[in-house]
């Protein structure tokens, strides 16, 4: 008997698929699975509009949609509280660790992207707008 997946509430972005080509801010091309923390930091340093921020996972709750979770982050030095609802397989990049998701098995199954388990206390790479003056 075949088991079909429930419809996803959010379209899965294609760029997390293993082998996807990612262009860094300096023009260098890398595969998504080869990205390192330094790649994000250096790209953000070059960017005029974006700056990198640390977002610490504070809570992970069940979402309203099937296969969804609500992740509460504490963002930046001001520790602003931000919640995002994503599918369990949605990967985040954890500083010094790499790709992590709430359901790494599903991420690996769907994207062929090796993943660790995203846990409370993990510090994820995120972006904010630089102040425009």
């Amino acid at each position: 008997p075949s088991v079909s997946s429930p419809p996803s509430p959010v379209a899965l972005p294609p760029f997390f698929m293993r082998g996807s080509i990612i262009q860094l801010a300096d023009g260098e091309l890398k595969r998504v699975e080869d990205l390192k923390t330094e790649d994000f930091i250096q790209s953000a340093e070059i960017s005029n509009e974006l700056k990198i921020d640390s977002s610490t996972v504070e809570r992970i709750d069940t979402g309203q949609s099937p296969n969804a979770v609500v992740i509460q982050f504490s963002v930046g030095e001001l520790k602003a509280q931000v919640c995002v609802e994503v599918l369990v397989e949605y990967p985040f990049f954890v500083f010094g660790q790499g790709w992590s998701s709430c359901c790494p098995d599903r991420t690996t199954q769907l994207f062929e992207l090796s993943c660790a388990k995203l846990c409370v206390g993990d510090v994820c790479v995120s972006l904010t707008l630089r102040s425009l003056k």
Partner: peptide, 25 residues
């Protein structure tokens, strides 16, 4: 005619969640 497909290239920032700016007034 079948044109060769170009490999899509994604910008680095598309991989990173964009969270609300935390600047104060």
């Amino acid at each position: 005619n079948v044109e060769p497909r170009s490999v899509p290239v994604f910008p680095w920032h598309s991989l990173v969640p964009f969270l609300a700016p935390t600047q104060s007034d």
